[in-house]
């Protein structure tokens, strides 16, 4: 009983915890509180009127739906890209690796304008699709393309280190025990990757929900059809309707937070399950 407290390798637990709390508070918590404080200016009835109008409901559906789809597609193809980057050695691999980060660095407005130009009926890609009646720029498909573009690095970068850490011998053991390739993937590789994949998915999803800069250029921004929530919020702000904008933002925050919490919970459960088996 000489040591009543748990000893840590590095000192300064209290100091660093204090700093973490201060930092999180300053950077994250205070702005979020400010959003909710702004909605305080509204009566319950006006809040409901602003947050549940048909136009707002249409925007939620589009924002959550398309962000979810884009993150799902990124989860599949991001995993593929990460796998290729880690497991194979080929000419140009480093270059490809660096390319993955580009959507991080590119100003989203530039991405939006470029994508809109490419997929417009007179653009490099759009002109090949237009004869088949397939329109991408200024449709929901365009929103999907933009959100997929900005979300890709999140999946690749979270899954990549986990694939690197996978033990090849485990896969060899599975093979010697008679597992076919699909079984090896399904039973051995995927469970190990799943928590990281889920994190990547959640990050891509969250990023897509908040995206404004690129979507505003590639979407036709029509209420009820192609208008995402951030664009609707901007339009409220430009009308000097701060409280209405804050009401929409508060709904987005609460729903996003619940979704991320659910994803974290799922991830925690699968990680524990994986460790037990």
């Amino acid at each position: 009983m000489l040591l009543s407290r748990q000893r840590r390798v590095l000192p300064g637990f209290r100091l660093t915890l204090g700093f973490s709390l201060f930092y999180l508070g300053l950077i994250v918590l205070i702005p979020l509180v400010a959003v909710f404080a702004k909605t305080g200016a509204l009566t319950w009835e006006r809040f409901w009127h602003a947050a549940a109008s048909p136009v707002a409901l249409g925007a939620y559906r589009l924002s959550f739906g398309v962000s979810f789809l884009a993150a799902l597609v990124n989860a599949v193809f991001g995993l593929l890209v990460a796998w290729v980057l880690v497991r194979y050695r080929f000419w140009g691999r480093r270059l490809m690796d660096a390319l993955v980060d580009l959507p991080f660095a590119l100003p989203t407005a530039v991405a939006g304008v470029t994508l809109a130009a490419l997929y417009a009926p007179n653009g490099w890609i759009g002109e090949w699709l237009a004869p088949y009646g397939l329109k991408i720029s200024y449709t929901r498909l365009g929103v999907f393309v933009a959100l997929t573009f900005i979300g890709l690095p999140f999946v690749v970068r979270t899954v990549q280190p986990v694939i690197e850490a996978l033990d090849l011998e485990v896969e060899e053991a599975a093979a010697t025990l008679g597992a076919n390739r699909f079984q090896t993937f399904r039973r051995v590789i995927l469970p190990a990757l799943f928590p990281a994949l889920l994190t990547g998915f959640a990050l891509a999803f969250a990023r897509a929900l908040g995206e404004y800069g690129s979507v505003v250029f590639i979407s036709s921004n029509l209420p009820l059809r192609t208008q995402i929530v951030p664009v609707l919020i901007m339009s409220k702000l430009e009308q000097f309707d701060y409280a209405g904008a804050a009401a929409l933002a508060a709904v987005m925050l609460v729903v996003s937070f619940l979704l991320l919490l659910a994803i974290n919970g799922l991830q925690w459960r699968t990680a524990r399950h994986h460790q037990q088996t």
């Binding site: 417009a120 009926p121 720029s137 200024y138 036709s220 921004n221 029509l222 339009s235």
Partner: peptide, 21 residues
């Protein structure tokens, strides 16, 4: 009859002039 509602005047000009909408 409006297929695209840009957020600003310059954006609309780009949509019409550059993208041929």
């Amino acid at each position: 009859n409006v297929p695209v509602l840009d957020t600003g005047a310059r954006g609309a000009t780009i949509t019409f002039v550059q993208h041929g909408i």
